[in-house]
Nucleic acid binder design. Structure first.
Lengths: 207, 207
DNA sequence: GCCCACGCTAAGCGAGCGCTCACTTTCGGC
DNA sequence: GCCGAAAGTGAGCGCTCGCTTAGCGTGGGC
């Protein structure tokens, strides 16, 4: 790999931005535990144990258990938004950009399934302020996808009677991958991404 | 309405089968609480309180808190399966049956959103045996949708390269409705059902 | 060689959890 | 009018939760 920040696939190694090392280990342990059992069923003792530390060590790096979830959710949403923005702003037709957005968004939900599960399904465990911050990010996610679809409608590439509803459906399709995808299943993240991109192009009447 | 079991819309009144009355009130309270906060964040005191009873009353009708979730999940999956079977076995073309299945399944996820949330997202809170029973029901749900799509492919109505993957996508679309739908939103369950049925017909190349 | 700031642990606090128990109330059968 | 079964309550048990506190080991600065 070219730098310490990139994998062979070119994807940024996740959680690089979390320092120091002990804080990152705790956060990764929390992602795994939250994804497996859910936020409320996960104990601080479990998180600390997975990170190879005592329960008290958690509180040196994070004020509360909720702050851990907040940090995970914030970073995860930033990454998701980044993926969509990259696809939305590249060169190419609306169909190409939509297919790119869907396939890369799906690849993330499948390949980083533990993170995606926490990001998509544990929002309600956050307090009001943290929740509001994340909801704002979700609106930006929605706007990126809607923007591509509107471009396609304007250029005549797409035939979409209900842009808002179709945007919702496209995001539904992508997000639900985090619910059912498993590494033991018959499909790779790449295969699911390609399939779903094709299905979405059909949904917008681009084929 | 024709009988005590049916609403004006012809839908069977839910939880009719749960008796006695106190057990039903507790179960309905549990559905609301689980849907709002999640199984693990819900206390038995909260459930009993919503039903207007003391915490101890819960244990007269249910052995454990988990038994409540199990009963809810079982009844909910039975109802979901019933909806899909009714659509799959009616008269008509594959396209008509698929549109009927999707629109009624989506209407259920939107209109009975609290139940659907518990049914679709709290599976992991069940113990191994209960979980296995529910997973078997989900396979039947999958089989019903796949059957309609296979019919359409066989008759030449549909153009679907990947039947299993497309089945997964159709169910994803329907199920995710329980995550985002809200009664305060701009759409009625009927509108979302009609929109999603149309999008699914596009996905299978039926238009 | 001393020191102290930092990272961490062992022990444990108060609170709230799922669930139980001893008891009361209600009510149909005779 | 009495009785046993069924349904419900108030009090609280044993436990585990999120989180705190007092103190220990260690390594860089001087």
């Amino acid at each position: 790999m070219s730098t310490a920040q990139e994998t062979a696939g070119g994807e940024v190694e996740p959680w690089e931005e979390v320092t120091p090392d002990a804080a990152r280990r705790l956060l990764i342990a929390a992602v795994e535990a939250f994804a497996e059992r859910g936020y409320h069923a996960t104990t601080t003792r479990d998180i600390a144990g997975r990170a190879g530390m005592s329960p008290a060590a958690l509180y040196i790096h994070y004020k509360t258990k909720e702050e851990l979830l907040h940090r995970i959710s914030r970073i995860g949403h930033d990454r998701a938004l980044d993926i969509l923005r990259t696809a939305a702003r590249r060169e190419g037709s609306a169909a190409e950009r939509l297919a790119d957005a869907v396939s890369s968004f799906v690849r993330w939900h499948a390949g980083r399934r533990t993170t995606a599960r926490v990001v998509q399904y544990e929002l309600d465990a956050l307090g009001p302020e943290a929740r509001a911050e994340i909801v704002a990010l979700r609106r930006q996610v929605d706007a990126e996808v809607r923007g591509i679809i509107e471009d396609g409608v304007a250029s005549g590439e797409f035939d979409v009677p209900d842009v808002h509803g179709t945007t919702l459906a496209v995001l539904s399709l992508c997000i639900d991958v985090a619910r059912w995808f498993t590494v033991n299943g018959p499909r790779t993240p790449e295969e699911v991404g390609a399939l779903y991109a094709d299905l979405v192009l059909r949904m917008v009447g681009a084929e």
